[in-house]
Simulated scan of single mutants.
Amino acid sequence: MSPYLQNPPPARPRLVAHLLTRLAPVAGEEDLAALIEPLPDNVLAGALQLDERATLHSLKAAARRARPVDEKKVVTHDGATWPVPRERMTDIHAIVARMGEDIASLARDAQDMEVRTSALVELGWPPAAIDAYGKRATRVAQTLLTLDEEGV
């Protein structure tokens, strides 16, 4: 094996900036994500500072895909929030928890446990997610409503 492959030179921000500037307008987000994923954060940040002509929207989107966001609920000073839109969620546990909260909220508003699939679709849930995780989410919702009744 060549010494170059055993010990490759470090990525240079100027070269990375040049390549990303040229590729961003023509490459898809998946291709950019594949390029960005192995880069150290400091090299990517340096590349973005060096060349502002880069399509920042495409680069940021690709970076988000390369470095997945934790989809669990986050508590901030403004209250609890979910960091990923419903239609883009992929973490099964987060999907079930969030859909369960939505079903419980809809059931409270409707004053019964009759929640229609169309109501979940209106909130942004894809029908495939409802089919796949709806039963588990309904059990979560029942638990949440029971805890509400008990005052917990």
Results as ranks from 00 to 15, higher is better:
G28T: 14
P25F: 03
L48G: 12
A54D: 05
D148R: 10
E87M: 08
A129G: 04
Q142C: 04
G79T: 04
E30C: 06
G28N: 12
S58F: 01
R64Y: 03
I95R: 04
P126M: 04
Q49T: 11
W125D: 00
N7P: 02
E52Y: 05
S2C: 00
T90H: 07
G100F: 13
V84N: 00
T55L: 15
H77N: 11
A63Q: 08
L20S: 01
A128I: 15
T90V: 07
P127W: 00
D41F: 13
P68K: 04
A17Q: 06
K135F: 13
K135V: 09
A34S: 00
G151N: 05
L44H: 01
P25G: 13
A97S: 15
P38A: 01
L35R: 00
P68Y: 00
E52V: 12
T117C: 14
R22D: 10
L50I: 07
V96L: 03
P127T: 05
L5S: 14
A54Y: 03
S58W: 07
R64N: 10
N7Y: 09
L144Q: 04
A33T: 10
A66K: 03
P3D: 14
A66P: 03
D78Q: 01
E37I: 09
H57N: 10
P38K: 02
L39Y: 08
Q111S: 14
P126G: 06
G151R: 00
A45G: 10
M113K: 13
D78G: 12
L23H: 01
L56D: 07
I92C: 12
A110C: 12
L59Q: 00
I92S: 11
R65E: 08
R88A: 08
E52H: 09
A97Y: 07
R65D: 07
T138R: 15
E149R: 14
K72N: 13
L144Y: 04
A47L: 00
V43K: 07
K73H: 14
A27N: 11
E87G: 05
W82F: 01
A63L: 10
P40H: 14
M1R: 12
L39Q: 09
T143A: 14
P13D: 01
R139A: 11
V96Y: 03
P127F: 03
A132N: 12
G151H: 00
S2F: 08
G151D: 04
V69Y: 14
D78V: 15
L15K: 14
D102G: 03
R116C: 15
Q111R: 14
V96W: 00
I95V: 06
V96K: 01
T76L: 08
K72D: 12
P126Q: 07
P127V: 04
S2Y: 12
R53N: 09
A63F: 15
A62T: 00
T146I: 05
P85C: 07
L35Y: 11
T117K: 15
A137V: 01
T138A: 15
S118R: 06
L15I: 11
A54E: 11
P38D: 01
M1C: 15
S105R: 15
M99L: 14
I95K: 02
E150W: 13
L15Q: 09
Q6F: 00
R88T: 05
G79Q: 02
V26K: 07
A128N: 03
E29M: 04
A132K: 10
R53G: 12
S2P: 08
H18F: 15
R86M: 05
K60G: 06
A34K: 09
A24N: 02
A66N: 13
A45C: 13
M99S: 03
